[in-house]
C-alpha cells in the first residue's frame, strides 16, 4: 500500500490579498500589482533586495514561497531537501510581451538583458532555490487549467522515491494586472490535510 502524504501548509496571493493557511496576512485591493506586491513584501518583513529586480511572476512565486517556508521555520542558511513542482497557464507571457516590446521596432532594437532573463517560467523556481539553498528536483508544467491530479501524482512519486523529504507544489500564474494567482502548498509525511485531489482543489478554490 502506498504512503499517504499530507499537506502541511498553504499560501494564496490573488486579487490584492496574501493569506497563509486561510488567514489573511495582508490585503489591499486598491493598488496596482507592482505596488501591492511591494507593500505585501514589506508587510512580511521580507529582506531580499534581489526581489525588486524580479519580474511579476517571480515576485508572485517568491513571496508566496517565502511566506510559507518562513512559517515552517525553514532556515535559508542551510541546504534543504525540498523539491518544487509548479504549474500555470500563462507561462512567462507577461514578461515575454515586455521583451517583445523592446525588439519589435528594428530601428529601436534594444533588448533588455534584465527582462530577457525572465522569459522562462521556471526562473521563479531558481529565485526560490537560491534564497533557500534548494538543490533538489524541480519542474514547471504548463496546463490549460489547474491540475490537482498531476500535482498530487508528481509529489507522491518524488516523496515515495526519496527524491525529496518535502515538496513545494502549486500554481503560480501572472497574465496581466487583473489576472494573477499564486497558490502554493507544502507536501510532507506529516500534516493536517490529506494530499489528495479533492483537498488540493478545495484549497485552490478558497
Amino acid at each position: 500500500m502506498s504512503q499517504a502524504y499530507k499537506i502541511k501548509s498553504y499560501c494564496h496571493i490573488e486579487e490584492g490579498g496574501l493569506s497563509l493557511n486561510g488567514q489573511v496576512l495582508y490585503a489591499d485591493t486598491s493598488k496596482p500589482f507592482a505596488e501591492f506586491i511591494k507593500a505585501a513584501y514589506k508587510a512580511e518583513n521580507t529582506k531580499y533586495s534581489k526581489f525588486f529586480k524580479m519580474d511579476n511572476l517571480s515576485k508572485l512565486a517568491f513571496l508566496a514561497a517565502d511566506v510559507l517556508l518562513k512559517n515552517e521555520k525553514i532556515n535559508p542558511e542551510e541546504a534543504q531537501d525540498i523539491a518544487i513542482v509548479f504549474s500555470n497557464k500563462s507561462s512567462s507571457l507577461n514578461t515575454d510581451r515586455k521583451h517583445q516590446n523592446t525588439i519589435e521596432d528594428s530601428s529601436n532594437y534594444f533588448p533588455s538583458p534584465a527582462i530577457f532573463v525572465y522569459t522562462l517560467p521556471n526562473i521563479c523556481i531558481g529565485e526560490i532555490s537560491i534564497k533557500y539553498k534548494l538543490n533538489s528536483e524541480n519542474s514547471f508544467f504548463i496546463f490549460e487549467r489547474f491540475n490537482a491530479n498531476h500535482l498530487k501524482t508528481y509529489s507522491d512519486i518524488l516523496l515515495s522515491k526519496n527524491k525529496a523529504k518535502e515538496v513545494l507544489c502549486g500554481w503560480v500564474d501572472f497574465d496581466d494586472e487583473g489576472h494573477y494567482k499564486a497558490f502554493l502548498y507544502l507536501v510532507a509525511l506529516e500534516g493536517d490535510i490529506d494530499n489528495n485531489e479533492q483537498e488540493i482543489n478545495k484549497l485552490y478554490n478558497i
Binding site: 529586480k53 533588455s112 534584465a114
Partner: peptide
C-alpha cells in the same frame, strides 16, 4: 552598490541606446 552581471549587461545596452 552591489550591482550584478545582468546589471552590467543592462549598462552596456544603456551606453548604446
Amino acid at each position: 552598490l552591489g550591482l550584478d552581471s545582468i546589471d552590467a549587461l543592462e549598462l552596456i545596452v544603456m551606453l548604446d541606446k
